[in-house]
Nucleic acid binder design. Structure first.
Length: 422
DNA sequence: TCTGGGGTCCTAGGACCC
DNA sequence: TCTGGGGTCCTAGGACCC
């Protein structure tokens, strides 16, 4: 998997305003129009078209803080992760056709290895990749090229403002690049660095490494090395095994009743179990938390607790049992809850099972969970679930999240197919 | 009125062991 | 007044990412 030193050249392919671009594939009225996609619960802007950026809408800005005169002309969509995930896979398919090694780094970014391609062909090949992705999938992208991931990221960011959309990292680029935009430099570090006069990527790369490491930690020291062209992170073509799976949501409305809270944690636990089994993993422990509303001036409470299993399990019944116990133990009736979450911890592969001297694994458990998963895959999520998460027919849970501008599942559900009239 | 979700890695400090 | 040294493991919190 490793790339021989000296030959390494990496590209970073990144979807422009990715979620907005996904929405635009199926809704041409959004093209060239200011558009944003909101976080869950229709809370904040998490993707903005260039037109929306030009209006001054900030990343992470809450919808209710966007002035009403701007909102009149603004197209707003609720997050549709089923759609974005599917489009993301299509982009990766095109890349895997062109490049031997592709690391899907996030839903909208992939690193590619350019080794095996002549240096003169690096840029033309990346231009070809961009064109294919635009034509075949409908997503505009940019590509940054560099000897390390950090430099490829840097070039990618700079490529956004070029007509070609493909750019190779150069000394000049590093000299002008703002330190706060460097991959691995967040808000806190940027502030500290600037206070000592470090404002560009070039400045950061020239700091004394020993002093940098002792004051900022080994992570930023690696970033510095990468800026100097020394790779510290390899391409990860195989997806590393997950350590934890978390399902959490803010509620559309605050809830106070323990039954509503139980219903929520139970729903999240079942969803987490689905993800767990899809990856053929088992959980060694469970974690539950809930939150009062941090934006309200009321007494806050944020209880959280975890428990371990004697033997790891992927059986929803075992996990629900723990989650219900933890929820009951932490619930206090004096508070209104705004958010809850369930985590599965200490994940291990299903095939590596530590036996229990006093208990026997039940072969029927696996069979039952298979039926449950197959049923939900075939008939839609929640088709078959446990009573602890059930709501009365034709009603919604009190805590259901708001999604008032959700687009269809165009590519993943038959009922979501786009109708075209001639 | 309305304010996201899901991850990783590193470090410091405490508990505990011999 | 003086009060060891060295190790592991776990957890909480902080930083970062998209």
């Amino acid at each position: 998997m490793g790339i021989p030193q000296g030959l390494t050249m990496l590209g970073l392919v990144d979807g422009n305003n990715f979620y907005v671009s996904c929405e635009r594939i199926f809704d041409p009225t959004l093209r060239n129009a200011p558009t944003i996609v909101l976080s869950n619960n229709d809370g904040c802007a998490i993707a903005r078209s260039n037109e929306a950026k030009a209006l001054g809408i900030k990343m992470g800005q809450p919808l209710h803080e966007i002035p009403s005169n701007l909102r009149r002309n603004l197209h707003v969509r609720s997050a549709n992760f089923a759609l974005y995930g599917d489009i993301s896979n299509r982009v990766a398919t095109v890349l895997k056709d062109l490049f031997a090694q592709v690391e899907m780094y996030s839903i909208d970014e992939s690193f590619i290895a350019l080794d095996g391609i002549k240096e003169a062909d690096w840029i033309p090949t990346c231009v070809e990749a961009r064109q294919r992705i635009l034509k075949w999938v409908g997503i505009p992208t940019c590509v940054g090229i560099g000897p390390t991931k950090t430099l490829a990221k840097l070039a990618n960011k700079s490529a956004k403002t070029t007509p070609q959309g493909v750019l190779r990292a150069t000394r000049g680029l590093v000299r002008r690049f703002p330190v706060e935009d460097v991959w691995g430099v967040g808000r806190k570090y940027a502030q500290r660095l600037k206070s000592e006069g470090v404002t560009t990527a070039q400045h950061l790369s020239e700091m004394d490494p020993t002093s940098l490491q002792s004051r900022y930690g080994v992570v930023l020291a690696r970033t510095q090395k990468e800026l100097r062209g020394i790779p510290c992170a390899e391409l990860e073509v195989e997806e590393p095994q997950r350590q934890q799976i978390i399902v959490s949501r803010s509620f559309g409305k605050e809830i106070t009743d323990i039954n509503d809270l139980m219903q929520a944690t139970s729903t999240f636990a079942q969803r987490a179990c689905e993800k767990l089994r899809r990856r053929n993993l088992q959980a060694g422990g469970v974690w539950v938390f809930f939150h009062t509303n941090p934006f309200k001036d009321v007494p806050q409470y944020h209880p959280h607790k975890s428990l371990s299993f004697v033997i790891p399990t992927s059986d929803t019944r075992d996990i629900l049992c723990m989650v219900e116990g933890l929820t009951k133990a932490m619930y206090r009736d004096a508070y209104a809850w705004k958010k809850a979450g369930v985590g599965l911890l200490d994940l291990t592969s299903e095939t590596i099972a530590q036996g229990d001297l006093f208990a026997q694994a039940s072969p029927r458990s696996t069979a039952l969970m298979n039926v449950l998963d197959q049923c939900n895959e075939k008939f839609g999520r929640g088709a078959m679930s446990f009573a602890s998460s059930a709501v009365a027919p034709d009603t919604k849970a009190k805590w259901e999240m708001r999604q008032s501008n959700l687009s269809q599942a165009f590519t993943t559900r038959w009922s979501g197919l786009l109708n075209v009239r001639l």
